[in-house]
Simulated assay, not measured.
Amino acid sequence: MTDLLAARHPVVMGILNVTPDSFSDGGRYADVDAAVAHARQMIADGADLVDIGGESTRPGSARIDAATELARVLPVIRELAAAGVSMSIDTTRATVAAAALEAGVSVVNDVSGGLADPDMARVVSDAGCPWILMHWRGHSRRMGELAVYDDVVKEVCAELSERVDAAVAAGVARDRLILDPGLGFAKKAEHNWRLSAHLDAVVALGLPVLVGASRKSYLGRLLSGPDGTPRPPAERDAATAATSLLAVAAGAWGVRVHEVRDTVDAIRVWQTVEACR
């Protein structure tokens, strides 16, 4: 994973939700065999690592307990580790992160930025692994009420900087940290668009930046039909690829997507054009 942190090429993270209720693909990969097959396909399509999540963080979702989360993710992690697949664990719980690291993942992707579980910093510090700190203001049930900003770009940057300082103070090496502006998390559509337009401000914080816009509702609303019905999640992949490419062009270290091949293809086109300048 050290090579990925230092990668000069954009890193593509493939999303694998082993949940019954994720907003886009809930239930599709709850079976271990289906999850493993999909992860293998994402790697074949060009993903650099697979991000495995056992708890939905869609707006309004209810929390599950740690035992349920572990029962969902560990069998998949063990199978993929045996196959040599690079993985991250998408969790806000230190106990889940620790078990996943022991089972074979190499990165902790914490959508709470360390706020949900004070023990997460210790787990990450002990493991010496990369830690993705996402901008977060509260659990899914409270997201809507927390989407209040005077200047979303300045506030997200300031709050991410606070999380970096807290992580370093807790013993995590700064060069192990990756930042995520948290598109869709306590953000309205206009906040997501403004952050995308000013991603350079997040990049300027001096750490690798991961962007996850994949299939999110603000893309669906942008692509609404004549009757105002948002386009369904599975039909937002072209918009996802466009958003991901714009992020890469703005300096993002990596992108997190459901459908890997389209994004990888788009990045290759961009890289080829850039190489000719």
Rank of each mutant, 00 (worst) to 15 (best):
I267N: 08
S112R: 10
W253I: 09
M134V: 10
N192M: 02
G114T: 09
A238Y: 14
A71G: 06
P10E: 01
A35E: 05
V96W: 10
D237P: 04
L160P: 14
P130F: 05
V85C: 08
D65A: 01
G104R: 09
G128N: 00
L74A: 11
V76R: 06
K188G: 01
R261H: 13
A99L: 08
A242S: 13
T243F: 12
H38F: 01
G113R: 07
V264H: 14
D110K: 07
V85R: 06
C129W: 06
E274A: 15
V107T: 03
P226Q: 13
R93Q: 14
A234R: 14
G60K: 13
L146D: 06
R236H: 01
A6G: 12
K154S: 15
A34K: 10
Y29L: 02
R194H: 14
A6M: 06
D117H: 08
G114Y: 12
A241N: 00
A167D: 07
M143Y: 15
G138Y: 10
D262L: 15
H9M: 12
D45I: 05
L222R: 10
S217W: 12
S217K: 12
A121S: 11
S24I: 03
E69I: 13
T95F: 10
V18R: 00
I267C: 08
V148T: 09
W253T: 08
